[in-house]
Amino acid sequence: MRDRKLMAKKFQVEVVNCQQSFTALEGCSLLMSMERSGTQAIKVGCRGGGCGMCKIRVMKGRYISKRMSRAHVSESDEQQGLVLACRVFPQEDLTIESDLIVDSVSEK
């Protein structure tokens, strides 16, 4: 148990719009991995799926996600890989686009 974090699988995350990359840890949200790596590639807000500041588009790679505010991520957003980095848990290497903070509901 003590070494669980050290043994966690690692994934590479490419952030195409700002030509940055960082290492994500299995079991750790994408946003938390970014913060821990010292990278500034995604805006950090509430870290709880509520404010929408960390909205990204996952262009490539598998992930699982926790519940996100419908004010910022509609069902169709989710299907298109538009998600909140604080609620995304990578399952393999990801290619993403960040800085998509636009309110998907008020946009309509």
Binding site: G45, C46, R47, G48, G49, G50, C51, S69
Partner: peptide
């Protein structure tokens, strides 16, 4: 600080 749903 924030609650786990992002309410401050």
């Amino acid at each position: 600080f924030f609650d786990p749903s992002g309410n401050r």
